[in-house]
Amino acid sequence: MPGSIEAGPAVEGRPAEVPVEINQKWCKGCDICVAFCPKEVLARPEGGKAQVAHPEKCTRCGLCEIMCPDLAIVVVPAARKGTSSRGQGGAADA
């Protein structure tokens, strides 16, 4: 795990929108995001593309986004203003 992860601001209960978008056309189902997500948010059905299985667990750390070889994943900024984790991608230095 490349260093500690600053947790994004937790949104009480289930977040209204999905924290991570996965481009289903670009994803080639390599399982890297599924394997390295620190909170096991992502999953991939046999022969299918990566999916956001447990959005409520997502801390928007951004690891899936920077480790996706297909550039298919984008972490969606949190709904509330001013506390976007978009800026630093979340993952700290190694």
């Binding site: 056309k25 080639k28 390599c30 070889p69 297909d70 550039l71 630093q88 991608g89």
Partner: peptide, 27 residues
């Protein structure tokens, strides 16, 4: 304000040709 990588891609050319799991996309 960091732009998503898609800002720098010719998205019409994606998905790329690299194999599933190839590290080139990460680099």
């Amino acid at each position: 304000m960091a732009m998503p990588v898609t800002h720098y891609l010719r998205t019409s050319k994606m998905p790329h040709i690299w194999c599933a799991g190839c590290g080139h996309g990460i680099v």
